[in-house]
């Protein structure tokens, strides 16, 4: 089993990479909205809202220890 320090050190770069991909996805979406002058349709808007809610959940220290379960339940809505 890994210590708290080992967990962070072992997975920091991977998590950084994954967060940057999410940031880039949102930037890509905003650029598309600017380019086309309209937002996403209903189905895509729902998926985007779920992603934003997931990001909020991850940033919430009070969200509990079962973050993965919470997100899987969230993603099951779409």
């Amino acid at each position: 089993m890994l210590s708290p320090d080992q967990v962070v050190e072992a997975y920091y770069l991977e998590a950084r990479h994954q967060l940057l991909e999410i940031a880039a996805l949102l930037d890509r979406h905003d650029a598309a909205v600017d380019r086309e002058g309209r937002g996403p349709g209903p189905a895509a808007a729902t998926k985007l809202a779920v992603l934003r809610q997931a990001i909020t959940t991850l940033g919430d220290d009070q969200a509990g220890k079962e973050r993965t379960v919470t997100l899987l339940e969230l993603f099951a809505r779409v």
Binding site: L13, E21, L25, A31
Partner: peptide, 17 residues
Amino acid sequence: YPITKCSPKRAVDMLEK
């Protein structure tokens, strides 16, 4: 790079921008 530098998707974003 797979993890530590730019990713293929982000590279295409910058090419478009």
